[in-house]
Every structure is written in C-alpha cells, then in structure tokens.
C-alpha cells in the first residue's frame, strides 16, 4: 500500500472506503475465472483448494476487481468503529482463520462502554450486511463452532443467526462465502466435514507450470525472463521434495520474493538461500539438499 499525498506515514481505511485502485495481476491457468463468475452469479459458495502461496488470495482479489466491485479488507480483531456504508458494490472481507478464531470473533460481541454495553459487529456480520464476498482463508484452522455459522449462510437460507442479540440477518444480495483450505498439511483431525464441504463448489489451485510461473515471477519482480526461468525451474525441482523432507513445496510467493531480492542486487544463490532454503525448512539436511539444488541451478 503506497502512501501518496498524505501527511501521515500510514493510511487508515474504514472498511467500505478501502478500494483497490489497480487491477491485481492474475494469470489464469485454466477456466477458473469463468467458473467463479458463474458461481457468483448463481450465489453458489466456493471452496478454493490448493497449497500455500499459489495464488488463491490473489485470485479472489482479482475476481472482486473484475466483478467491478470495490474491495475491502478488514482483519477480524481490529474493528474499531462501525461506519456507514456509502460505496456501492461488493466489498471483499478477508478473514485469516487461526485456531483461536471462534464464532464470536466472526459475528460480533458486546463491549463495555461507559456504564453500558455496546454491540460490535464482527467481520462476517459486516460482510453479510454489506452484501460482499467474505473470504475465510484457511478455514479448517478455525474453531469448530464457526461451522455453525457457515451452514445457514451457504444453503438456500442465506441467513446469519446472531444468537446473543436474538437476531437473524438475511444476507445482502451480493453476499458470497468463499473459503480456502490446503488439503496438503492438515491432519485428519482438521479435515473439513462432508456436511460442510458439500455446500460448496470447489476450484482447485496448484502451482503453475514452469512457463506460466516464469511469467508470473518476471511480472511480479521485474527480473529478467532468464532469471525467472531459473527460479521457476528451482520451484519445480523443490516441489519434487514434497513429502520427501518437505511438508509443502516452495510457493510461487517465495519464488517471487527471491526474484525481488535478486532484482535488488542480492546474488541469486544468496537470495534463494534466504528466501527459499531457510524459509522452507529448519532441518539441516533438508536445507543442505535444497541448497545443493540451488547451487546446481544458479551460478
């Protein structure tokens, strides 16, 4: 987020005021754009499946933009004041789920204010009210009670029960629930229940093929196509190590980080070491083997 023309070193956005100005870069690998558009039109909730850093979040941002809607991001715990909605369009509420995230965090809670209590809407409630896309990232990480909320929102009812206030909120027209999960490293305990997953259509993501990944890396980091190609090659090779020392292959995101460091003048081997080798693994043997791979590919 660049800051232009303001005196402050940062910029504060109220939920509805934050709009992405430029089109996010997204390189479609298949027909996912069409599928998502169709699902949105038909109000069918969507699951994104795929490993970390392969572009799920970028895709949802891109789709929010593409559907010509302003994009709004808030984080679950830091909702200060509730302000009026003015902007039209469908905000995108991204919520990163973690293991302590409970239903209350999503719906809202009472706060003490002066001599009384005051209700504060949670991010999900806001998205439902605003009729935006609510993106629950890594949903399996959240506590089980959150599924109670998801179910009525994802079938024909499209309602959000707010138990503590004794209310039911009907979702706005543009509301769509999108959740993501990474089937790779979840333990059996944290799998999504069938009753939940069968309420969504699923779009599968994976790391792009070498050529596409080269283009993505080159675009995101401005390195030369050749360097991008080497990084894409490294990515492909490291991903061979998945489940053979690594839980997860290297993400496109990390490859881009490495490319950016290279663009800034860090030597390729060093850049890969900090951005890929050390970021991926703690085990010295695994680190060493990836490092050998790096030194095989980069001069």
């Amino acid at each position: 987020m660049s800051i232009q023309g303001t005196g402050k070193p940062y910029r504060e956005h109220i939920i509805e005021e934050y709009v992405i100005q430029e089109e996010p870069y997204y390189l479609p690998l298949s027909d996912e754009v069409e599928v998502f558009e169709a699902a949105y039109a038909q109000k069918i909730p969507v699951i994104f499946k795929g490993p970390t850093g392969c572009g799920k979040t970028r895709f949802v941002e891109y789709m929010a933009y593409k559907l010509s809607k302003p994009l709004t991001v808030i984080k679950p715990a830091d909702g200060p004041e509730h302000s009026d909605q003015e902007k039209k369009g469908i905000p995108l509420v991204t919520i990163a789920c973690h293991e302590d995230l409970s239903a209350n965090d999503l719906v809202g809670r009472y706060l003490l204010e002066d001599e009384s209590t005051k209700w504060l809407d949670g991010p999900l409630t806001r998205a439902v009210k605003a009729g935006g896309i609510c993106y629950l990232d890594e949903v399996v990480e959240a506590r089980k009670d959150t599924t109670v909320l998801i179910h009525p929102l994802t079938d024909h009812r499209r309602v959000l029960p707010v138990e503590k206030k004794g209310q039911i909120i009907e979702a706005g027209d543009g509301f769509l629930l999108v959740i993501s999960y990474n089937p790779g490293y979840q333990s059996a305990l944290k799998d999504i229940k069938q009753s939940t997953r069968q309420r969504f259509i699923a779009i599968e993501f994976d790391y792009p093929p070498r050529e596409a990944e080269r283009d993505i890396i080159a675009h995101e980091s401005s390195v030369s196509p050749d360097t991008a190609w080497q990084l894409a090659k490294l990515g492909e090779k490291v991903r061979n190590l998945k489940e053979h020392g690594l839980e997860e292959g290297v993400s496109t995101r990390l490859l881009i980080y490495a490319a950016r460091l290279i663009h800034q003048g860090i030597s390729p081997r060093r850049a890969c070491q900090v951005a890929i080798v050390w970021a991926l693994a703690d085990d010295t043997e695994v680190q060493r083997s990836i490092e050998e791979l790096v030194s095989t590919i980069f001069e």
Partner: peptide, 14 residues
Amino acid sequence: EILRMYSRALTGRN
C-alpha cells in the same frame, strides 16, 4: 540423505 533429497528433487522420483 542430502543427496537422496537432491536427486529426488532433480528427478521427481524416489
């Protein structure tokens, strides 16, 4: 182990 993972990475095979 290092070489095993290294060649696994190169070849994609076990």
